[in-house]
Nucleic acid binder design. Sequence first.
DNA 1: CCTTGACCTGGAGTGCGCTTCGGGTTGTTG
DNA 2: CAACAACCCGAAGCGCACTCCAGGTCAAGG
Lengths: 134, 134
Amino acid sequence: MDTQAPDHPLADNDAELTPADMSARTGVSIDTLRYYEREGLLQNVARAESGHRRYSNADVLWVEVLRCLRETGMTIEHLRHYCELGAQGSHTEPERRRMLTEHRQLVESQISERVEALRLIDHKLSFYPVGESA
Amino acid sequence: MDTQAPDHPLADNDAELTPADMSARTGVSIDTLRYYEREGLLQNVARAESGHRRYSNADVLWVEVLRCLRETGMTIEHLRHYCELGAQGSHTEPERRRMLTEHRQLVESQISERVEALRLIDHKLSFYPVGESA
DNA sequence: CCTTGACCTGGAGTGCGCTTCGGGTTGTTG
DNA sequence: CAACAACCCGAAGCGCACTCCAGGTCAAGG
C-alpha cells in the first residue's frame, strides 16, 4: 500500500518534495503540475498530513517523461490514455508499446520536416547580403 | 508597376489560380489563406474583375515558405513582422536575415530536442516485451 | 499571537491559430 | 433561366493547453 509506480522499483516512500521543489526540478509550473494531476497524467501523488502534496523522485522522472512527450507533440488526451493503460496492469503493455512506437514515428517525421526547413531557410538566407553583425 | 514580389523575378502577371486551386496546390485551406491575407502574411493578392482572388505561382511558392515556417513554430506575429519588413524595402534586409537566422537556431534546437526524445522513447520501449504485431 | 507566504480547491479566463457562420454575389451547367 | 457551387465579407466561435482567481487552510518567524 505504499508503492504504486509500475515502471520504477524505487517508489514514493521518499516523497518529500514540495510543489515548489518539484517545479524547480522539472521546469513545469506548479499550476501545470496540478493540471496534469487533474487530467490523470500524474497519479497517486502523496500528501503530507496537512493535505499538501509531496512529490517523490519517481514523480520527478515521470514528469520529465511527460515533458518530453508533450514537447514533441503528444496531446494531453493521448497521454491520459497512456496513463490509464499503465494503471490497468501489464496486459495493456502491447497497446502502450504501440502508442510509443506510433509517437516515435511522429517524432521522426518532425525531425525530417525540420531538416527540410533548415534547407529552405539556408536557401533563403543565401539570397541576403552578408550581414554586418557589429 | 505590375510586379511586387521582391524575392522572385517571376511575378503575378500569371495570377490565374482560384482559391480552390491554391488550396489544393499548397495544402493550406481556403479559410486559412484568407486568414493569412488578413493578417498581412500574404500581400497584394490579385483579383479577377468579379472580385474573386487569383493567386500566382509566386504566391504558391510564398505560401509554401509560410507553411514551412509555421510548421516549425514561427508565430503569426513574427511572420507578419517579417512580411512588413519585406514590404518596406531592401534596407530591412539585415533585420530579415537576423530573424531567419534566429529561427534557424530555434529549428536546430527543436531537432536536438527531438533526437533526445527518440532516445528516451527507445529507452522506454526497451522495457516492454517484444510485441506480437498480428 | 500575528503576520506572511506556500499551499489547498473548483472554476473562470487567456492566447493562439485557425474555423465556422450568416448573408450576400458571381459564374457555370443542364 | 434556374439551380447550384464557388466565392466574397466581417464577425463570432472553437479546441487546446495551460494560467489565473477567489477564498480559504497550514506552518514557521518575530
